[in-house]
Design a protein around this nucleic acid. Structure first.
Lengths: 234, 234
DNA sequence: CGGCTCATTGATGCCGATCAATTATAGTGG
DNA sequence: CCACTATAATTGATCGGCATCAATGAGCCG
């Protein structure tokens, strides 16, 4: 089961600069003594919340990675987003809606549980928070639009290649952790395990990339980019 | 070219109850004399803005329908959203980003052009606006997630059927305008013209639906629903 | 070691894209 | 009003990409 580690201490929080409280002057934090979110640990076999649950809390990811998924009654699953440290999630309650997806850890994670009511109050009183959240929603929306383009207009190899490029962006050919199984990559890109596996094997053979226990390394961005843009796109 | 019809008069606006100013007390509107958005007309062969343009204005749709599209260099296009009366769009500027998609009328439209700076000021001073916008962003995000599930996890017939059901939702079998060409439906659902045409013809033959110059009528929601849930989903 | 899950690889089949031809539909100008 | 053109929709034939089915191999843990 999930495990409450203790109360959070925003003032000394290591990842505050990544959170929605980044822009908030530290002085203000001192004033907000009433706000003491819980830090909670989840194992990969648990879920933080389920699609359809009443959205009583929002969360900030402190450690690890989280996948947000939607599942059809027949079991087909789509990953709609992968979260990283500092990301806010589970905020459907702000629109008086239940959670629209399920949040599952990809490894052991640590989150900050923010009760909806308190967070709303805090947001109301601090325009910096308001502003940061707004910018993030817009960014999410933009990413969602990008993803729709991927899913609707690109073919398998293009989707996979541009996903890998995006995942390793800015790392200049060094090793990057990719804690997603073949199946999960498939669920993210609307492909089957086999298709993902085939292309990856292919590209490893061609020397475009390297893989070792959950980490990958792009050896030829150009090679991948050529695949991603096979039909003349980018 | 686009045609500025004149200055907007928020106080007497017919569609204000659908806009982001819905929750704003009318009294407050009187105070905001400085804010006088332009009402602009666009023809179907123009665009309101292009993907990549600096986002200087946001817009509220007053009349007609708008499609938001993203296009790959090779020409493949994805419709990421279809807008209706009252919808706010083109707000990327709030996150200091250029437009992420292109906005094109599906018919002659009338929009309210809201200069970013003024709108931001207005939002800052009126929590009701802030709140309404926030709720809408979250709703958009939810819809985007739903769409990703459609595109990633469903097959052609399922996507098309559930799209039609959604489009005609709550109209109880009466005629509904559908001002999208086969090609545009395809661009929305990640399908080709031919595939869309084939299924529609098929379903018309089976008596599931009826069509007449840009309007459709669902005669058997059950029939369609069975197609949409062919693999046991919903 | 044996049992588990995950990844790989091959063989086959089907869905939907592509190519191609015909038929509506709307708009234009004589 | 009708012929003429342009565009959209339909329908058929074919092809190929990806899913599906199936078997084997690799890593991991008790």
């Amino acid at each position: 089961m999930s495990n409450v580690k203790g109360k959070g201490h925003c003032q000394s929080c290591q990842i505050r600069h990544l959170s929605i409280f980044a822009q908030l002057p530290t002085v203000r934090l001192v004033e907000i003594q009433a706000f003491q979110p819980s830090v909670v640990i989840y194992a990969p076999d648990e879920t933080v919340y389920h699609q359809g649950d009443p959205a009583a809390n929002a969360y900030t990811l402190r450690k690890g990675l989280v996948k947000l998924t939607k599942t059809l009654p027949n079991g087909r699953t789509q990953i709609v987003r992968v979260l990283r440290t500092g990301d806010l999630f589970g905020f459907d309650g702000f629109a008086s809606e239940p959670y629209n997806h399920t949040a599952t850890p990809l490894s052991e994670i640590e989150v900050c549980r923010l009760p909806l009511g308190e967070l709303m109050e805090l947001k109301k009183q601090n325009p910096e928070i308001e502003n940061t959240m707004m910018r993030r929603w817009i960014q999410h929306l933009r990413q969602a639009e990008d993803m729709m383009l991927e899913l609707g207009a690109k073919k398998a190899s293009e989707r996979l290649a541009s996903f890998l490029i995006r995942w390793c962006e800015g790392t200049g050919g060094s090793w990057v952790v990719l804690p997603l199984s073949r199946g999960e990559i498939g669920e993210l890109l609307g492909l089957t395990i086999e298709t993902v596996s085939r292309f990856l094997s292919d590209w490893k053979r061609q020397g475009f990339l390297n893989e070792q226990r959950g980490s990958i390394q792009i050896q030829s961005v150009d090679g991948l980019r050529k695949v991603a843009c096979a039909s003349g796109n980018c």
